[in-house]
Amino acid sequence: MSQNQPAIEVSHLRKVFHIPQRDPGLGGAVKALFRPRYAEKVAVDDISFSVPPGEIVGYIGVNGAGKSTTIKMLTGILAPTAGLVRVLGRDPHKERVANARQIGVVFGQRTQLWWDLALVESLNLIARIYEVEPKRYKELLEQFSYTLELGELLAKPVRQMSLGQKMRAELAATLIHEPRVVYLDEPTIGLDVVVKEKIRAFIKEQNRAKGTTVVLTTHDLGDIEELCSRVIIIDAGRVIYDGPLATIRERFGKYRGITFETARPLEHPLTLPPGAEVVGQEERRLELRFDRTRASASQVAAAVMGQLEVLDFSLSEPDLTSIVKQIYGGALSEARPV
């Protein structure tokens, strides 16, 4: 493989599922048996992108956008309906075994370790499956034990591990054969801040030391901010944004939310500084958002406090999900990076 060849190349990728349709009841079941009808569901419509070796890409989108279908085609699990996929120059589906040697996959909350086996036994088995050279395996095991703090976990079966321990174990299992391309599906979901930090640091370190290419799907803006130089956002099976994180934040993260708890319900309309608006209102709760390029949090807070008795208020950063929604809701043209 030449140095300039992309690690991942996807061009006009498409995946259509045929979902069997049947009427309710026994009659429907019998009819479906003899005359099956299918509905077409386009999971991936037309996706193209290319990832150079050593890049960490955030691959994001709302649930059902086509993220996992794309990942399944990249890993060789699913065959594309149309279009081209190349991972390190190979067709991952047709050359499934050769591709499998070069990739590592963490599938969200599904473990790839054996439930009842002590972690070290699981790792031994995986190393043998991938034919990791024994001496190298020993070195890596030592390295991972240190960086992922596996020490006391090695003798523990997965079923006894906490969520954070499981994810550390999972990462060790995924990277023990030193894959050149790694797919991580929600690697920090449900973890506390400290563990999240450890995991991000480990991914960063692997990427830096070995030039590992990483495709990361996540709902966590922190993962993306810390790891990804580039983000691909997909929706309804299409790429709606492909560019640096900075541009998304500038364009779509410009709103911040501010929520007030008031002593009495709001009775008359509020006068607000330019760029601020009410987005939600309950009995004694008031949700606003404001464009931070036009107004500051203190201006908005002062304006509200001047008109209402406020008991408490809090500020929130826009999360990625709402940014994705925003982009999808018509801001597409703005999103193209220059």
């Binding site: 890993t75 699990i77 499934r96 075994v97 499998a100 040697r101 599938f107 599904r110 499956i129 991938y130």
Partner: peptide, 13 residues
């Protein structure tokens, strides 16, 4: 059903 079968398909055996 659990999707665990996918694990077999990403391994080189």
């Amino acid at each position: 059903r659990s999707g665990g079968f996918d694990r077999f398909l990403v391994r080189p055996i």
